[in-house]
Design a protein around this nucleic acid. Structure first.
Lengths: 281, 281
DNA sequence: CGCGCCATTGATTGCTTTCAACGATTGTGG
DNA sequence: CCACAATCGTTGAAAGCAATCAATGGCGCG
């Protein structure tokens, strides 16, 4: 209950010595157009950087938090548990995501958060962050933008859960992951590392692991997905995109006020490590 | 394209002459603890109050907006259309809801909004609102709270779509509607008016209208729902709640920082017009 | 009064789940 | 470094929930 606000570890400035800024600050800079001053402020709020092992519950459902958790590296997920144990993963959290943005305004989390692989996490004090966003319009807008994008991703998943077939939905998930991971520089060769088990994928898509297995096999058979262990490659982006009915618009890659990233204009195209990738319609 | 910012109609102050403040301001006052000064500011931003007929598209998918739409009265919905015409309603918009909060931070709407009955709508200029939220921490927090609750509702619907049966999901929808409508004073006698057709309900739940018809009949047969035309009554709240596995926590009735409404404490209980109603766990 | 949208019902199909069992992989301790 | 245990992935058969197809009745609006 008692919040310990000791800054347990001070992290080196984010622009130091050619070190790559972390995924969170990078994303805010690219997408929300945050300047160095604001980035420094946010970075200064980092507390308690720590490494967390896989399958650790970062936040328990119904718990009261005084601080936000920023995922610097690794994957995690937000999920809800029904009374009888059924689980729905409502959001996959990737490097640069805030695990519990809602904690800024709301007292009890209505979801749980669990790491899916070894992660690096820092926390931000909610009061300090609110103060910062009162002082800097840039920070306020950046937080608003993060919330809006999260909202759009949830709505799009609604559409997937309600109106897309299992095959379309799985293809859609791969599309979304490729785009989101590209933004934070976590793709290689048109693919990425995905730590999820098939059961976890099932809890994202609202299906059973048995069915995920069969549908995934279908995508592989048709050459839309290649897998080696937990490394996935999407050899034919356009075919996959079509299969999924995927449009990148809801990710708002254009950023706040069209400030957006180094990803060029509609239809958001840029060169991947190995071949050009076109996101979108 | 050109934004006309003429204030076409000036609305009388929200606290005037015993008139009930509109649902939007009421909700912000109760849930976000907004003071009269902030409410006045927001009210002063109202522009273009107008009446809109049923089944009118307020916002088109992929459209660029300069202003937010506040639903003062009536029902509307936010939805997504897939390429082949499948539709998913991602949010039912009730009196007091903002139709497109995301427009504050994002340029192109990734959804459409349509009225479901005759509505009263006002608009707010996004720039003016952002300015207001920079000047008033209360307004900034209120907007943040609205966004957080919206996210929570979307996440809960995810869980419904992915992990609840049609019957549970429909029961859950009725529970949610009763709570949300109570907050804005739109319930009567343990029930409410719901303008949706069965096809629209189907687009909310990700089902077909045929199946909605059968499942709804099931709920009526079991005495969980009563219907006369578009008026619904929920005669046995506890039974319905249990059937749905409904918990009100995600609606965050406690409000910002626990400031929340006149609804009492956990487990959110208050007297309905005809009998005591207990929301939630 | 008639057209059109909405609600209702029955029969059939099909996607996804459930149940069960086996094979593969990963991690761990001796 | 190997062996075993536990988890994860794979496969088949059967059952179930919801979709689809098709047709009829009801109601409101012009």
């Amino acid at each position: 209950m008692a919040s310990h606000r000791a800054r347990s570890r001070t992290v080196s400035p984010h622009r130091t010595s050619g070190a790559i800024p972390d995924a969170f600050l990078t994303r805010l800079k690219q997408m929300a157009g945050l300047g160095d001053a604001d980035l420094d402020i946010l970075h200064g709020l980092y507390e308690d950087e720590r490494s967390v092992r896989a399958r650790v519950e970062l936040i328990a459902q119904g718990t009261r938090t005084q601080r936000l958790h920023v995922l610097i590296d690794g994957w995690a997920c937000r999920y809800r548990l029904l009374a009888d144990g059924r689980r729905q993963i409502t959001e996959l959290l990737l490097p640069g995501d805030i695990c519990d943005l809602d904690a800024l305004y709301v007292r009890n989390s209505d979801f749980a958060v669990m790491t899916l692989m070894p992660c690096t996490v820092v926390t931000l004090d909610r009061t300090a962050l609110r103060t910062a966003s009162q002082r800097s319009a840039g920070i306020a807008d950046a937080l608003g933008w993060l919330g809006a994008v999260e909202n759009a991703m949830l709505a799009e998943r609604n559409a997937c859960l309600g109106r897309r077939s299992a095959r379309e939905h799985l293809a859609h998930l791969f599309c979304e992951l490729l785009v989101r991971l590209t933004v934070v520089g976590r793709t290689r060769g048109g693919g990425f590392h995905m730590p999820l088990t098939q059961e976890e994928m099932a809890d994202v898509l609202g299906l059973t692991s048995v069915h995920i297995n069969r549908v995934l096999q279908g995508l592989k058979t048709d050459g839309l997905v290649e897998q080696r262990g937990h490394d996935f490659v999407l050899p034919d982006w356009n075919a996959l995109r079509q299969e999924a009915g995927f449009r990148a618009d809801y990710l708002h890659l254009e950023g706040i006020d069209g400030i957006g990233g180094d990803f060029g204009a509609t239809p958001w195209a840029f060169a991947g490590p190995s071949r050009p990738i076109v996101f979108g319609l």
